[in-house]
Nucleic acid binder design. Structure first.
Lengths: 132, 132
DNA sequence: TTGTATGCAAATTGTTTGCATACCC
DNA sequence: GGGTATGCAAACAATTTGCATACAA
């Protein structure tokens, strides 16, 4: 995907993308940086940010912005629902086959040329409900 | 709503909330500040931010975070879909009655105590498609 | 060999905070 | 009158940028 766009395939880019594919935790840029630090001691935060921007532009990764907390990144390319706990900040994925149909309706009704979607429910997860 | 929570009703709070109810443009904090400036020359940005945080906590207003651009605020309390143009940054609302049913399903399947939801499609709006 | 990607550090942007004064209740 | 909300300015945090060097093609 990189080389077919005339971009270079570097260890940093590969490792960041592989890390996103390997986890379901929707990490922040800093969490990715910390996680890859041991394997690539030289890697800088700037490279993580630049690479993430690139992956988002290529449509391989989805950027999740929240009001306060730092951005998170999602390597799951399929349309799905994010459920976010406002206490522990964890995010769970939920598959929902209806979303494809919804996208078609939205496209027709709005006239937009759609390039992505994002669905989020938030509240308190079962774990945190129990804890008090 | 404010007074019933022991909070004070001030001109600033009222005007910010009224402004959000009066517009469909999903303004940023700064846009709200600029818009109210003429009527309240003394109002500060800090007050806008503090008030918005308060309104979000009260559940009257929804905070929309994006990856890069500044946060936007939505006074529409009903579950709906946002369609965002990645070229001109405008956001349109779309009603979708299915969302209520979806929320119920999500609540059951996840065990979360839900407090809100957000749905976003993005792409290029009809206007911007024409322009090139 | 050529030029793009990296790493570092400084700059930038949106947002938050601390504190003295104003003003709602 | 008591105490919270405001306005101002400084502080903060996440992200971006500029530039010299490293390295993929």
């Amino acid at each position: 995907m990189l080389s077919s766009n005339g971009l270079r395939v570097t260890p940093q880019r590969l490792s960041i993308y592989e890390y996103l594919l390997s986890t379901r935790s929707h990490p922040t840029a800093d969490e990715i940086y910390q996680a890859l630090r041991s394997r690539f001691p030289m890697m800088s935060q700037a490279t993580v940010y630049k690479t993430l921007e690139l992956l988002v532009e290529l449509g391989l990764v989805c950027e999740l912005g929240f009001g306060d907390e730092p951005n998170r990144y999602d390597g799951n390319p399929k349309a799905h629902i994010n459920i976010r706990c406002t206490r522990c900040h964890r995010i769970y994925d939920l598959e929902e086959p209806e979303l494809d149909r919804l996208a078609r309706t939205v496209q027709e009704r709005s006239g937009f040329r759609l390039s992505g979607q994002r669905h989020e429910f938030y509240g308190v997860c079962p774990d945190c409900q129990r804890q008090r």
